[in-house]
Simulated scan of single mutants.
Amino acid sequence: MLTKVVIPVAGLGTRVLPASKAIPKEMLTVVDKPVIQHVVEEAIEAGFREIILVTRSGKQAIEDHFDHHYELEMELTRKGKHELRAAVNDTIPDDVEIVSVRQPQALGLGHAVLCAAHIVGDDDFAVILPDMIIDNPDGKRDLSAMTARYAESGRGQIMVESVPEDQVQRYGIVDCGGAKVESGQTAEIKGMIEKPKAEEAPSNLAIVGRYILPARVMQLLKETQPGAGGEIQLTDALLALTQESPLEAYNMRGKIYDCGNKAGLLQANIALGLRHPETGSALREFISGLTL
């Protein structure tokens, strides 16, 4: 069964400085929850029950957030604020476990994933990047659909989104051999290229930070040589994997917000805030009164 997900949270958050100087970027809020909680809830809804945080010093607030805060819970109970108590007490279900492992040096995404190898063991697993919130307003989560496709096909999955062709140089791009991949559909990956020039891009399908991978990837990461900047790249291991077994690209249906940068964080707050029962009306009224 697919139960384990690796979430690398050791990044410095330089794109949202100075907000992330003393607060982990993953703890910046979107409406009333930190970004990391949105991501963990996405994983839990998709069926994952073992959340592995790859962290570093200075990130204890993330672990604390998912722990009990007995004094706060008792005070909320005493004041009869039972809904608030439930909100702070039920950040994860009782059958979900969150564990942490340290990444001693920032040596790339592949290295961060490899730091969790002794916990993942021989199991297939997922990787979720915590900067990205995927909004599925219809309630049908893309990650859940991707795990269902994994269960059906037995093939590793990489989530992608269609981006404008003049923006492909910003992303890792997959090559599906020219296949047209509609939203919610999959196609076999023939190759991957990091930040290609527009004229060299094999498609406009950009990798968006959700992976379901076979256990074999951990061994390939151990064999992967450091690339640019001395970092171990997950993409290099995935390219090696495609020589052994098929990987599929799953083209997402929802809207993605990159909360690792200031504009994306603001956009996520507006989009989700407009639908939140406590903030929607007031935020809509405020926006309609703005003079732009």
Rank of each mutant, 00 (worst) to 15 (best):
G121Q: 13
I134Y: 04
G139R: 10
P130W: 03
D135P: 01
P93R: 10
E75R: 15
D123K: 07
I98A: 03
I119C: 06
M74A: 14
A112F: 02
P104H: 08
Q105Y: 09
P130D: 08
L114F: 12
P130I: 04
L107C: 04
E97A: 10
T77D: 13
A87Y: 11
A116K: 03
P93I: 11
R78P: 00
A117W: 01
F125V: 10
I128K: 01
A117G: 04
N89Q: 14
R102P: 04
A126R: 00
D90V: 02
P137L: 11
D95Q: 10
V120S: 01
L109M: 14
D94T: 12
D90C: 11
V88P: 00
M74N: 13
I92R: 06
L107V: 07
H118G: 05
R102I: 11
G121N: 12
V127W: 00
P137G: 09
M132K: 07
P137Y: 11
L84I: 09
G139C: 12
N136H: 08
D122N: 15
E97F: 06
R78I: 05
N89L: 10
I98Q: 02
D135K: 06
Q103L: 15
I133Y: 01
V99N: 08
V101H: 01
C115D: 01
K140Y: 06
G108L: 03
V96N: 04
D124V: 06
T77S: 15
A117F: 03
H111L: 02
I98D: 02
A126P: 01
G110K: 00
M74T: 11
I119P: 00
L76Y: 04
K79N: 14
I133S: 00
D90T: 08
G108C: 06
D138H: 09
Q105F: 10
G121E: 13
E75C: 07
D138Q: 13
V120H: 01
V120W: 01
A116S: 12
P137T: 11
T77I: 08
D135A: 07
H118T: 14
L109S: 02
I134Q: 05
L107F: 05
H118V: 08
V120G: 00
N136A: 09
A126K: 01
K140W: 05
L109R: 03
E97C: 07
F125I: 10
V88M: 03
D95M: 09
E97S: 13
E75L: 15
T91H: 14
P137F: 10
I98K: 00
H82L: 15
H118R: 12
D123E: 14
L129P: 01
H82Y: 13
A86N: 14
V127Y: 00
K140V: 15
V127C: 03
R102S: 13
K81M: 15
Q103W: 02
M132V: 15
L129N: 08
N136P: 05
M132P: 00
D135W: 14
A126V: 05
I98W: 00
E75I: 10
